[in-house]
Amino acid sequence: MRLRRPVPYEELDHTADAGVIVHGRCKEEALARLVLAYADLVTGGAPVATGADRVVEVAPGDLAAVAVDVLRELLFRLETERWVPESCEVVHFDPQRGARLVIGSAPYDPVAHADGLVLKAVTLHAARFEPEGSGWVAAIVFDV
């Protein structure tokens, strides 16, 4: 299932930095929402054009660490390849295999996205990805 922006998320009220909390019916949906919430932060919620699909794969680890690694990779690609996610499909996501995502990319536009946050890094501080009730919750803090 491919998700597209906008997705529901909450902004964490961190004193110096920024963070998001997302919920999903399954862990894959929560991860996809996390990716698209990140895209919302860096573009300031501005619309993006649709571009080519890109594959992002990260190594195994606990779910929070894998989610952090997915966002780390996206941040690196934003700075070096200048694109942001427009849509996201989680192919697999578990501690044994890590994660594989197919992401619809859109060019980062410094003018249209000038209201976006400039994130320096994705932190492990207070990172969580866990079941909650009948669904899943994930929270990530970004260094700004």
Binding site: T15, A16, D17, H125, A126, V141, D143
Partner: peptide, 9 residues
Amino acid sequence: IHWGYGFPI
């Protein structure tokens, strides 16, 4: 001092 990540700022 204020809330950082790991270390306080």
